[in-house]
Computed example of a mutant assay.
Amino acid sequence: MASEITAPLPGKIVRMDIEVGSSVEEDMEILAIEAMKMENIIYAPCDGTIEKILKKVGDEVEEGDVIATVA
């Protein structure tokens, strides 16, 4: 079953260190969202492989938006 990587706050994706097929480990830095001129690091929720990426660098996200899935 896939786990979702969601935006914890509204902002703009400024860095993404993953691509489809990337292996990730729980708590690994995978992307950054800029909000109020501060960069917020987002971490992988579990071990697995990136299955799908729904957003890209430069996209604005709202709290709860799904950014990617890990299987």
Rank of each mutant, 00 (worst) to 15 (best):
E25A: 10
A2S: 11
G64V: 09
D27F: 02
A71S: 15
T69V: 14
I13Y: 01
D65I: 03
K56H: 01
L9C: 03
G11N: 03
P10Y: 03
M28A: 12
D47S: 09
T6N: 07
L9S: 05
K37W: 11
G48K: 11
G64Y: 05
E39P: 05
A44G: 09
E60N: 09
K37V: 14
M28V: 06
G48D: 14
D27A: 08
E63W: 00
G64N: 08
V66L: 06
I5C: 05
V66R: 10
A7G: 05
V20M: 07
A7V: 05
C46W: 01
A7E: 14
E26D: 13
D65R: 05
S3Y: 04
Y43D: 05
P45E: 14
K37P: 14
E60I: 01
V20Y: 02
A44W: 04
E29L: 07
T6A: 08
P45F: 08
A7I: 07
E19W: 01
V24H: 04
M28I: 03
N40H: 15
I50N: 11
C46L: 04
M16T: 12
V61Q: 04
L54K: 04
A35D: 14
I42H: 11
C46G: 05
D59L: 00
V20H: 02
M38Q: 12
I30A: 05
D65H: 03
E63R: 06
T49E: 13
S23I: 04
T69R: 14
D17Q: 09
E60S: 06
I41Y: 02
P45S: 12
E63S: 03
A35K: 12
V14L: 12
I13F: 02
I18R: 10
N40A: 13
E19N: 13
E25C: 01
M28R: 09
P10W: 02
K12G: 04
L54E: 10
S23A: 09
M38N: 11
G58H: 01
E25V: 09
D59V: 01
V24Y: 03
I5G: 10
C46Y: 04
R15T: 09
E63L: 02
R15H: 10
D65N: 09
G21I: 11
G21Q: 10
A44S: 15
E4L: 02
M16W: 08
V14M: 09
A44M: 06
T49V: 13
M1F: 00
E29Q: 14
A44H: 07
E51T: 11
A7K: 07
A2D: 13
A44K: 06
G48R: 11
K37H: 13
E26F: 00
T6W: 00
L31N: 12
V20E: 15
I18A: 07
D27T: 12
D27P: 00
I41R: 08
G21D: 14
K56S: 06
A68W: 11
I53H: 02
E34V: 11
G21T: 08
E4S: 13
S22E: 07
E34L: 08
A44R: 04
T49N: 06
V57S: 00
G58W: 00
E4K: 12
T49W: 00
L9F: 04
A35S: 15
V24K: 08
P45A: 09
E63I: 03
N40K: 13
